[in-house]
């Protein structure tokens, strides 16, 4: 860890990596809270994996893979959302299908793209150390879009997540805000792919918010705590992986996963002790 801290001041790529992690954690805190509370983690997983199709196609045709990822993420978010809203049948099967189809398309494109095949690994598992500086601006831009949208329509998002039927009765365009929410999830997925890759995105999207939910009982509070936790996990994961030369993404995820399991046990214990104390008092 001390090795990392001294290297951090010397190497610009480490500073970029650290910043990328912090920028990603804003998305995972704000949107991750929505995903956890609305219980759409599986949907988010489908969106994340189908993104490979877009990345592969972009790579093959010579565009920026991130742009391809953004396009594919929004497309599959709209597709999944539309089916959930208007079809209401076999939603989980469709998500599973989209999940697999997206990945298959991506792998075919990548296989046919001439050049270095190791790119596939960095899409799947991310490589925070290879984030170019200009991508930081792209990430910051996405963060700004996320925060502005959520701040402007906070009440509508809250209503749609809390109680769709009641929101509809109050004249909130539920379908619009539901699809918008899924698009924000898609944007967040693209943000996080830079850091941990698309396979592990779902962990960083849900675990910090879920841990926050163990202790904080307001949506805004969960967002703040989850963002801080996300920043902690990405920074600490980067630091811990640097010395022994481990891949950074999986280190971050194991850290988040470990804290989540411990926290779930702790909150369980606290609830149990609270109930016991109540019982002995009466």
């Amino acid at each position: 860890m001390s090795q990392f801290l001294s290297a951090l001041s010397e190497h610009a790529f480490l500073q970029t990596a650290l910043l990328a992690g912090l920028l990603a954690s804003i998305g995972c805190g704000v949107i991750g809270t929505f995903v956890v509370v609305k219980r759409i983690a599986f949907m988010a997983g489908g969106i994340a994996h189908s993104v490979l199709g877009g990345m592969g196609a972009a790579l093959y045709y010579g565009f920026d893979p991130l742009l391809g990822a953004l396009f594919a993420a929004i497309l599959s978010a709209l597709l999944i959302g539309t089916v959930r809203l208007f079809w209401k049948m076999q939603e989980d099967t469709l998500i599973g299908a989209l999940w697999a189809i997206g990945m298959a398309i991506g792998i075919l494109f990548i296989a046919k793209t001439p050049g270095y095949a190791a790119d596939l690994m960095s899409f799947l598992f991310g490589n925070i150390l290879l984030v170019p500086t200009r991508e930081l601006w792209f990430m910051a831009g996405l963060d700004l879009v996320l925060m502005l949208t959520v701040a402007l329509f906070y009440r509508q998002f809250l209503a749609v997540i809390f109680d769709e039927e009641f929101a509809r009765l109050r004249g909130v365009p539920v379908a619009f805000f539901y699809l918008l929410l899924l698009c924000l999830v898609a944007v967040t997925v693209v943000l996080l792919i830079q850091v941990v890759g698309l396979i592990l995105v779902i962990a960083l999207l849900t675990l910090p918010a879920a841990i926050a939910g163990h202790y904080v009982h307001s949506l805004g509070g969960m967002m703040v705590i989850a963002t801080l936790l996300g920043g902690l996990f990405t920074s600490l994961g980067l630091g811990l992986s640097y010395g022994p030369d481990l891949p950074a993404g999986p280190t971050m995820i194991l850290l988040a996963g470990g804290v989540y399991v411990l926290s779930a046990l702790l909150s369980r214990f606290l609830t149990w002790r609270g109930a016991l104390r109540q019982a002995t008092q009466t």
């Binding site: 009440r155 509508q156 809250l158 109680d163 009641f166 929101a167 009982h217």
Partner: peptide, 29 residues
């Protein structure tokens, strides 16, 4: 109630949801 009971929201915030559609659309409560 069509919401999960463990939803992180206070009674006052939930009741304020009944005010949607009154006043300007953007912003917080």
């Amino acid at each position: 109630p069509s919401f999960p009971r463990d939803f992180p929201i206070s009674v006052e915030q939930a009741v304020a949801m009944g005010r949607l559609g009154i006043g300007p659309m953007l912003g917080w409560h």
